[in-house]
């Protein structure tokens, strides 16, 4: 794997960003979640099988910020589902590339535990984030985040973003 020239400062920013994302999603703070994305953005949750075989289908495939907002409306207002909490464990990011224009391609592994009311935490979704991020003066923004999950089966339903 080729090494990249990222600065320590940017790596720390990036690490903080990944952990902030996890915290925001775990707290179901959807306004903050939306704010982490650029206006022009892609967010997908896709089975590894589809990704590895170059099949475009994804469990969720949102290709604009408007779609992200619509998703949040859907999960908060329209979709009936069992209430649950999420807890994300996100690894340190691995930088894949960095351009001089402040665009970083990176990835990090994640594990999401789900805990339902009356329930016990269970391993819900395991995979990796594959990201294109932009470092701006206002912080880091997500241009593209693919959540490529290993699970062959989604445990019934997937409501909240991961």
């Amino acid at each position: 794997m080729k090494t990249t020239l990222i600065t320590t400062e940017n790596y720390l920013k990036l690490t903080q960003f990944y952990q902030t994302y996890a915290a925001v999603v775990d707290q179901a703070n959807w306004t903050a979640w939306l704010d982490m994305f650029a206006e022009d953005c892609v967010y997908k949750v896709q089975a590894r099988e589809n990704y590895d075989r170059n099949l475009p289908m994804a469990a969720l495939s949102l290709t604009s910020k408007g779609m992200l907002k619509d998703r949040i409306y859907g999960i908060t207002e329209t979709i009936f589902h069992d209430p649950y909490h999420q807890l994300h464990m996100v690894s340190s990011p691995l930088i894949l590339s960095e351009s001089d224009k402040g665009v970083i391609e990176s990835q990090a592994n994640y594990t999401v535990f789900r805990t339902k009311n009356d329930g016990i935490a269970e391993v819900y979704n395991v995979g990796r984030y594959l990201d294109r991020l932009r470092i701006t003066d206002d912080g880091i923004q997500i241009e593209s985040r693919l959540c490529i999950f290993d699970n062959e089966m989604i445990l019934n339903s997937l409501i909240y973003p991961i």
């Binding site: 949750v45 475009p56 289908m57 994804a58 469990a59 969720l60 495939s61 949102l62 290709t63 779609m67 859907g74 329209t78 979709i79 009936f80 589902h81 069992d82 989604i154 019934n156 339903s157 997937l158 409501i159």
Partner: peptide, 27 residues
């Protein structure tokens, strides 16, 4: 093809109008 993929967001385990079907079946 894009249209079919976009509309697929309505269906499947995360779908706007399908995620709830799996839930009610469980309960």
């Amino acid at each position: 093809t894009e249209r079919r993929l976009r509309q697929a967001n309505l269906f499947g385990p995360a779908g706007f109008v399908s995620a709830d079907d799996g839930e009610v079946i469980e309960f």
